[in-house]
Amino acid sequence: ETFNINVASGSPPVVPWVKLISDVFIPEVNARIGDEHTINWIESYSGTVAKVGGVLEAVESGLIEMGQVYAIFEQDKLILQNITYMTPFGSDDLELVTRMIGELHDEHPALKKAWEDNGQVFIAPIGLDTHYIATNFPVTSIDDLKGRKIGGAGTIANWLNGVGATAVDGNFSVHYNNIQTGVYDGLLNFSSGIFPNKLHEVAPMLTRVDFGAQFVGALTINKDTWDSFPEEVQTAFLEAGEIYRLKVSEALQGFARMAEGKMVEQGAMQSRLPEEERTRWAQALPDLAADWVVRAEAKGLPAQEILDAWIAKQADNGVALVRTWGQ
């Protein structure tokens, strides 16, 4: 059989999890389906078919067959998939976090149902490596952040406001300029994003806070397309998805370590926020998860159950939690 698969992402192929669709996922699928089936792949990255916030709908409608869906841009339709952003200060091991998220999807039908309600099937999770706070002033205590303006868009802004800093909206195309000219004094971001954008030049104090690796979204496939697949093709996609997940984690963590080394080489000062300060930070935040549970349960979703399972799973995997969210 022959299938036409157009796979899309709102991000450009310089992002590892986009590049690895071409370099790992597609070849792994092709190798597994052998000569019995053929897939004609069309790759539409950089938002050429849908922007980051539009991929969910594009896959659901069947405009494209596969896509990289960012749950962080779907705070209402994929509310449950925003779980790690509501429970920061978890593990920094991206491979572990995406593995636990995958298991959670297998064990809790509500999570897979969220994808199916949007007409798609979850193939592989994608995530971000640990977050740094890069500043042009030294940070040894969370008190140092009080009254400071820090760039950080989206849900992570909630992490900043809780310690008396002011989150200022920004993105990678404006961070450099904004820090240089004092629009803000630093930013909160994942380490593999700071280096390529040279942000350590203007915010050379790199403080690793260990907010934990984050579950961002997933590689998904249209439900009807999925149902049209013979079983061996479905298996091929899931197996290729698992390899893709491992390679993405490896690539991001490898890149993050390389970036950290390079940034220090180029004059940045790297430090780690002391453990007691990290704990203070976690305690200072409002209970993000509790608010999230209320919002999700109002929509009839078993958020408390999934939150409890998430906390238990982290404990089972030896993740030391500095705050038990949702209590």
Binding site: G54, S61, L63
Partner: peptide, 18 residues
């Protein structure tokens, strides 16, 4: 190309809203 009217509608509405 796709043989589905509804897909074309989605193409249009998504472009308009995005």
């Amino acid at each position: 190309f796709k043989g589905k009217f509804a897909l074309s509608v989605t193409l249009l509405t998504q472009a308009v809203t995005e």
